[in-house]
Simulated assay, not measured.
Amino acid sequence: MEFGFEEKDFLACCGSTKFAKEMALASPFASLEEAVSAARDVWFNKVDVHAWLQAFSAHPQIGDSTPSSHHATPTSAQWSKGEQSTALATATGSTLQELSEWNARYRQKFGFVFLICASGRSSGEILAELKNRYPNRPIAEFDIAAQEQMKVTELRLAKLFSSKANVSSTTDQYPAVATKKVEEDRVSIIGGHLTATSEATAGKTSQISTRTRPPITTHVLDVSRGSPGAGIEVRLEMWKGAQPRPSFGGTEIGGWVLQGSSTTDNDGRSGQLMSIVDAVDAGIYRISFNTGKYCPAGFFPYVSIVFEIRESQKREHFHVPLLFSPFSFTTYRGS
């Protein structure tokens, strides 16, 4: 049995008009595997950079339902919503806000929407991957995004073949289904096999933290300018000296152990200063800011904020911002 499709069908699978035309010319296909093989050849060998960017722009950003261009079809929009269903179901208001902020940073750096095969992934996992990929060089990230687009395309091709199949003509490999929910579950399994990532993903799922950001975060606001303090070096340390805690005015050496360092971005927010874990170690922490380098004419060569996390607070979040001016500073525990 051969499966024939129109150009609009392939446009729903991948938002590139060039890709859709090439696939329509290659249709019909005897099997899903044949279609996937053709799709890979078209995507990686026959279309150009403009086609990649056009396909990227047809995707809504994670956490949103509106595509970034008019190239998205009603079918692809519906599929995007289904593919993001796990992420949306596991998201909180703060997670969606953080996803939105990081999506904006990503788009500003790379020029296109953050693209990931979101099917079956939690919001926390997607956010962690976004942060992990953000430091990439643009040329490397462009290639990763193209690979993710191909994963999405393969998953949607499976849905396309499923929609063509019926009870009397479907093979044992791609059985017909009675409900949309069952179809989505089955297609997700097929998509996982096609991209050869299901086992790796399953192996990581149990290790994913329920947090969407590290337990200790900070940002800097330059109150003298009324704007974020960008470009300030930040260090997070934990006290691990011989004494349970550093003494007031003490001169202990070697007690502070670096947990992570970063530089504040244009929004005044630091990068990740420690791992994303469900329970942070109780103890004394110190966040230090290189304010002398940021404001050479100011009064403070650096600012350090020392605080304690108790055993009963290990699962809480600690946002410790710095409100800074050349001759004063303050802080508070935020959320």
Rank of each mutant, 00 (worst) to 15 (best):
residue 1 M to G: 13
residue 5 F to E: 01
residue 7 E to T: 06
residue 8 K to A: 15
residue 9 D to S: 15
residue 11 L to C: 08
residue 11 L to Y: 04
residue 12 A to Y: 06
residue 13 C to R: 04
residue 20 A to Q: 03
residue 32 L to T: 09
residue 32 L to R: 07
residue 32 L to F: 11
residue 33 E to Y: 11
residue 36 V to R: 14
residue 39 A to I: 10
residue 39 A to K: 03
residue 41 D to E: 15
residue 45 N to C: 13
residue 50 H to K: 13
residue 56 F to T: 00
residue 57 S to P: 07
residue 60 P to K: 05
residue 62 I to P: 00
residue 62 I to F: 04
residue 64 D to T: 03
residue 64 D to C: 13
residue 68 S to A: 04
residue 69 S to F: 12
residue 71 H to E: 09
residue 73 T to K: 07
residue 73 T to G: 03
residue 74 P to V: 11
residue 78 Q to A: 15
residue 83 E to A: 14
residue 83 E to G: 12
residue 84 Q to Y: 09
residue 85 S to N: 11
residue 85 S to Y: 05
residue 87 A to M: 00
residue 87 A to D: 05
residue 90 T to R: 04
residue 93 G to T: 11
residue 93 G to L: 00
residue 95 T to Q: 01
residue 96 L to D: 02
residue 96 L to Y: 00
residue 97 Q to A: 14
residue 97 Q to L: 12
residue 99 L to N: 04
residue 100 S to I: 02
residue 103 N to G: 12
residue 104 A to L: 08
residue 108 Q to A: 15
residue 108 Q to P: 05
residue 116 I to L: 13
residue 117 C to V: 08
residue 125 E to R: 09
residue 126 I to T: 09
residue 128 A to Q: 12
residue 129 E to M: 15
residue 132 N to T: 13
residue 133 R to P: 03
residue 139 I to D: 15
residue 140 A to T: 07
residue 143 D to G: 02
residue 146 A to P: 07
residue 149 Q to N: 10
residue 151 K to T: 05
residue 154 E to N: 07
residue 154 E to D: 12
residue 168 S to G: 00
residue 175 P to A: 09
residue 176 A to S: 15
residue 177 V to T: 14
residue 178 A to I: 01
residue 180 K to I: 13
residue 181 K to D: 12
residue 185 D to L: 15
residue 188 S to T: 08
residue 196 A to E: 11
residue 197 T to G: 14
residue 201 T to S: 08
residue 203 G to Q: 07
residue 205 T to R: 10
residue 206 S to N: 01
residue 209 S to W: 04
residue 209 S to Q: 01
residue 211 R to V: 12
residue 212 T to P: 00
residue 212 T to R: 06
residue 217 T to W: 04
residue 220 V to A: 07
residue 220 V to D: 01
residue 228 P to C: 07
residue 229 G to P: 02
residue 230 A to E: 09
residue 231 G to H: 10
residue 243 Q to F: 06
residue 248 F to I: 02
residue 250 G to Q: 02
residue 252 E to I: 02
residue 254 G to C: 12
residue 262 S to F: 07
residue 271 G to T: 03
residue 272 Q to G: 03
residue 273 L to M: 00
residue 276 I to G: 04
residue 278 D to W: 03
residue 278 D to I: 09
residue 278 D to E: 15
residue 281 D to L: 08
residue 282 A to K: 02
residue 283 G to M: 01
residue 289 F to H: 09
residue 289 F to R: 01
residue 289 F to P: 02
residue 290 N to P: 00
residue 292 G to K: 06
residue 300 F to W: 10
residue 303 V to M: 09
residue 307 F to P: 06
residue 311 E to N: 14
residue 323 L to Y: 15
residue 324 F to V: 06
residue 326 P to Q: 13
residue 326 P to D: 08
residue 327 F to A: 11
residue 329 F to Q: 01
residue 332 Y to F: 10
residue 334 G to T: 06
